[in-house]
Simulated assay, not measured.
Amino acid sequence: MAVQSYEIIQRNPKYRELVHQRSVLGWTLSAITLIIYFGFILLIAYAPKFLGTPIGSGVITIGIPIGVAVIVSAFVLVGIYVIRANATYDSLTREIVEESL
């Protein structure tokens, strides 16, 4: 019985659309994350003097806000996924389950 339900769900065009949408968003957010993190690492490796430049007359350097921005970007990207999942994916999943019963 469970195998039949799974096959019915897999044939549903809404399920295919859900899988496609989630895949595209997941890969996009993953690529953005990798670009941010590797970009920061490359900046550390190839421009340490730039990151060590003080801001104003204090002890804070340019690298500190950039590093904080890298961390904050991870939370922002997770937030984007959660908002999209709550707005689109949950309702689409509910529709798929209701149609397969």
Rank of each mutant, 00 (worst) to 15 (best):
I41Y: 08
Q4W: 06
K14S: 13
N12M: 14
I32A: 08
V82Y: 15
F40W: 06
V97E: 10
L51F: 06
I71V: 12
Q10A: 14
G63R: 04
L77P: 00
G26H: 15
G67I: 05
Y89E: 11
A74E: 14
E7L: 09
G39V: 02
S91E: 13
S30L: 13
T61C: 05
G63Q: 02
A85G: 06
R22Q: 04
A47Q: 09
V76K: 07
L43Q: 00
E98M: 13
F50S: 03
L101M: 15
T53D: 10
L25I: 15
A2L: 12
V19T: 12
S23N: 07
P65G: 07
R94D: 12
T93L: 14
E7G: 04
I36M: 08
L18C: 00
P13E: 12
Y46I: 13
I41R: 03
L77K: 01
R22D: 00
G26S: 11
I35Y: 01
Q21Y: 09
V82A: 13
A87C: 09
V3R: 11
L29I: 13
A69Y: 01
A85S: 10
L51I: 07
Q4G: 06
G79L: 03
T93K: 11
A69M: 11
V76E: 07
G58N: 00
R11A: 13
P48N: 09
V97L: 03
G26T: 14
L77Q: 01
Y81N: 01
T53V: 09
I9R: 01
I62S: 02
I83W: 10
E99A: 12
G52Y: 15
T53M: 12
V78I: 15
A45K: 08
L34T: 00
R84K: 14
I55L: 11
F75D: 03
I41T: 09
R11P: 07
S100D: 03
V3P: 03
I9Y: 06
T28D: 08
V78T: 12
G67D: 04
L92R: 04
V3C: 03
I36L: 02
V82D: 15
E95R: 08
I64D: 03
A2S: 13
L51T: 00
F50I: 07
P13V: 15
Q4N: 13
P54T: 10
V76Q: 08
V24F: 11
K14P: 04
I9S: 01
V70C: 01
F38L: 07
K49Q: 10
S57C: 11
E7Y: 06
F50K: 00
I55D: 05
I32G: 08
G56E: 04
E7Q: 01
I35M: 04
I64N: 06
K14A: 09
E99Q: 13
E95C: 08
S30Y: 14
I83Q: 01
V70P: 00
G26K: 14
I32Y: 09
Y37S: 10
P48T: 15
T28P: 02
I66M: 05
A47E: 05
I41F: 15
I36G: 02
A47C: 04
I62R: 08
